[in-house]
Design a protein around this nucleic acid. Structure first.
Lengths: 143, 143
DNA sequence: CGGTAAAATGAAAATGATTATCAAAAGCAG
DNA sequence: CTGCTTTTGATAATCATTTTCATTTTACCG
């Protein structure tokens, strides 16, 4: 399938004069095949599984490019590792993070988004992105 | 003034069988004298200014105690340093973070809090805390 | 009051994630 | 192809945070 994110990245690369490389293709493919909050380490391991030659530094560098290109976003959880998630055009999801088992439940709420817009407007603020994380115990962990 | 947070911490210390030490008193005083999002480094420097003997590790250790005691909360911004903010009993504030000048504007919104409770309930989730950060450009920076 | 066991501290080493360096390899325009 | 520039991979460096451990403090008990 021709992923529309690949197009996005190619356009970004072209506009920045970046060269097209095998490793960037691989890393983008692997990233697109993941779901939710991949850490660099996790992604690196997945990449290495099929392409042993690729270095960790390249994965770091490439993920930063994805963020610049607008197709990934950094998520800081409390495990000391920066994670990356997919940016979905138009929609935005937030997270319920279970501090018991580290499970992450995603949700969306239109009203909250609207309220954020109002708040921003009231402060003369131009929103670029946001992050809402709710910490607590999930159904299984609260026992 | 007898800060009510000191009482909170003393109760916590007592319940945990922690000993009362000079450095914990100092660090608590300095922390209480700060506003918004102090990094460990910043707090350490402030402490060292009046009490050169206190070590950085102690500041780290003590801040974690404050979090356990419920009077501080970790805030992860994108500058690679963990920051700590005051937990205000009952109320919770969120942040508008300007990506231009790094200014932080705090706000509160009762409706958003209520919506979060609803969402959590719907997922069988027991909320312990949450974090909402809106990134963008402040009035001066969006110019 | 000492005396003592347990906890806390400070300095320094260790760790873990991320970034910088740099020589070698790869992409691209001519 | 040729030559120039970007990208890469391996490794060293960096930065925040944690551990370690010998030494100092604290709390308690007689």
């Amino acid at each position: 399938m021709i992923h529309e994110k690949k197009r996005t990245f190619n356009e970004f690369a072209a506009s920045k004069g970046l060269r097209s490389t095998r490793q960037r293709d691989i890393i983008l493919d692997v990233f697109l095949s993941t779901h939710q909050h991949v850490s660099v380490e996790e992604l690196y391991l997945k990449v290495k599984a099929s392409n042993p030659g690729v270095g960790q530094a390249t994965v770091y560098r490439t993920l930063k490019l994805f963020v610049e290109a607008g197709l990934a976003r950094e998520v800081l959880l409390h495990d000391g590792q920066t994670r990356f998630e997919h940016v979905m055009a138009g929609e935005h999801h937030d997270h319920l993070v279970c501090t018991g088992c580290n499970a992450i439940i995603e949700f969306e709420n239109e009203t909250i988004e609207k309220l954020q817009d109002e708040i921003a407007t009231r402060h003369g603020f131009k929103i670029r992105s946001h992050k809402l994380e709710i910490y607590g115990l999930c159904a299984s962990c609260k026992g």
